[in-house]
């Protein structure tokens, strides 16, 4: 199992029946593959669909039916289509129980940076700011470190932020963290990892509740 699959598998366990969720582009789109068969939820996509289903195949792809990343999708019974103003009324109006987004940096107080590296990477804003600022719960799913091996969890963001104090939970291939009242808590450790490794690879300050840290 790749590190991305490992993260998606853990992230899938944060979702329960009845929720409305949004999946950011990239790693978050792997989450539905790991959902329990019995979990019934509504997947929102920014381009104007609630009730998105599995990815479409060559046989059933419809040219007018995609998700926000451009992939052709199926829709589940009870799905609806709507315009972009309605789509973002769902987002900004607080109707999303969880949004899953990737990250370039997360600060220990829950600031998220994921939209721009000035001078290097500026593909635009998309729905990210609104999702980060307004989802009822924001879960960041990301590799623990950058490709250069630097911690993505840091005391203060160095990049321009997407939104401040917006992240509620961070799931990496090594650990699960929670941010409560501007403080970062280590909740779970991957069975392949250790507290020593997490301490070494996490630049942000974090606390631990209790003595035993559960594995995932």
């Amino acid at each position: 199992m790749s590190y991305k699959q490992r993260i998606a598998e853990r992230a899938a366990r944060t979702v329960s029946t009845g929720m409305t969720i949004n999946l950011g582009i990239g790693l978050p789109t792997l989450i539905p593959c790991y959902l329990d068969q019995e979990v019934q939820l509504l997947i929102h996509s920014e381009n104007g669909v609630l009730g998105a289903g599995k990815a479409a195949t060559q046989e059933n792809a419809h040219p007018m039916q995609i998700d926000a990343g451009g992939g052709y999708i199926t829709v589940n019974k009870g799905a609806s289509f709507f315009d972009s103003a309605t789509s973002f009324a769902i987002v900004r109006g607080g109707r999303l129980d969880i949004a899953f987004l990737g990250a370039l940096e997360v600060s220990e107080k829950g600031d998220l940076a994921n939209w721009i590296i000035p001078g290097k990477f500026a593909p635009g804003i998309g729905g990210g700011m609104e999702l980060a600022q307004k989802a009822r719960k924001l879960i960041v799913v990301t590799s623990h470190c950058t490709k250069k091996g630097q911690s993505k969890l840091i005391p203060e963001c160095t990049l321009p932020v997407t939104a401040k104090k917006c992240v509620d939970m961070i799931i990496t291939e090594l650990a699960v963290f929670e941010i409560k009242n501007d403080e970062l808590f280590l909740l779970e450790i991957a069975r392949e990892s250790s507290l020593d490794e997490i301490t070494e690879k996490t630049a942000a300050r974090f606390r631990i509740r209790g003595k035993e840290i559960p594995e995932f």
């Binding site: 920014e46 315009d83 972009s84 103003a85 789509s87 973002f88 009324a89 987002v91 900004r92 804003i125 998309g126 729905g127 990210g128 700011m129 609104e130 600022q133 307004k134």
Partner: peptide, 24 residues
């Protein structure tokens, strides 16, 4: 931001001068 672009256009069509938002 995507939904703000949508609202800027929607409000333009609705004969409004603009919108007020905390996004960003």
């Amino acid at each position: 931001p995507q939904g703000i672009l949508a609202e800027k256009i929607r409000s333009g069509g609705a004969g409004l001068l603009g919108i007020i938002t905390d996004i960003g």
